[in-house]
Design a protein around this nucleic acid. Structure first.
Length: 85
DNA sequence: CGTATGACGTGCA
DNA sequence: GTGCACGCCATAC
């Protein structure tokens, strides 16, 4: 296995572990990824990620606003609304 | 290494 | 509540 895991890989792993009906903030994800101050990088990385296996739509900003979504912000809201409980 | 970019966060007017 | 500026980190070139 590659131990040269990039911060991006950690972010993907963390986001992938987000249970349905739950949402984590970029800050939380960054913290779980190992760098609580890399929330900026989290957004940068997720923006480059186009993997549908990553529920990046469950990651929102700390103010509760939707940052964005590689497939369209509308899809993000749609998914969250669908999974929202 | 320096510069530029980005789905952020916080502070202030 | 809204808009703007600065600071933060990781990645790409």
């Amino acid at each position: 296995m590659k131990k040269l895991k990039r911060f991006s890989d950690l972010v993907y792993t963390v986001v992938r572990k987000i249970p349905k009906g739950s949402v984590l903030t970029y800050k939380e994800v960054a913290k779980r990824a190992g760098s609580p101050l890399a929330f900026r990088a989290v957004g940068t990385i997720l923006s480059k990620n186009f993997d549908p296996a990553i529920p990046c739509h469950r990651v929102i900003r700390s103010d509760g606003a939707m940052g964005g979504y590689n497939r369209g912000i509308s899809e993000k809201i749609r998914k969250l609304k669908s999974e929202a409980r």
